[in-house]
Amino acid sequence: MSELVVKGLTKKFGGLIAVNDVSFSVKSGEILGLIGPNGAGKTTVFNCLTGFLKADGGSVEFNGRSIYNCSPNAICALGVARTFQVVQVLQGMSALENVMVGAYLRHSRTAASRRRALEALERVGMSRFADMRAVNLTLPAKKRLEVAMCLATDPQVLMLDESMAGLTPTEIHDASSMICELRDAGMALIVVEHVMEAIMPIADRVMVLDSGIKIAEGLPAEIVRDPRVVSAYLGDKYAKRVKC
């Protein structure tokens, strides 16, 4: 059983407060959806949690241990992995090699790393692309590859940044069932998503950010009716109309 607890996370860019005193937690076997309009600070939260940006305040604890402003590789080694909003893979290497880089974290020997990497590729349904150079993969395949790379590091918390944007409905369906499988296997997931239809059915809880502030948290069904959320997304006028 593992748990990631974030308290009062704050990040400033000059005078702009991109993330303002945000607190939440996620534990094994749970999918936390993180939604909000463009520029709400979702990706910044990810970057602060995973060490890619230095936060300006707050605390981040993973299984009781502070990972606040640790280096990305140290955080990954502890068991928190993430994908990137704009898909990022190691372009010049084959899909298998991409995943092996992740697998080396727990398996120093090449043969073991290769075995672990093949498992991870299998799990996301990418086995047949193992020898293809990553640069030649299609966008959905790259997104799957990114997940496989994270899985190979044996994470307890997996953070997916818009891993369903730009996919077709069928691909979204496949991706959703993959995410659910990972949860059922005992992983904790934080999923940033723009595609509401994709995130609402699978999330156990949803948290909403607007202008860096957490404005709501709850069950998906509650969130869609929350007037603050509706106004953040659609403006105040629309929110009033929903109310009556």
Binding site: N73, C76, F84, L90, Q91, Y104, C150
Partner: peptide
Amino acid sequence: RSKMGYYFKAIRENEDVASGLGVNR
């Protein structure tokens, strides 16, 4: 053929991805 070689190439291809996968760049 070792971890070192793979990590070197990963750093060459994309430092951020590499460190996100646990590589101490």
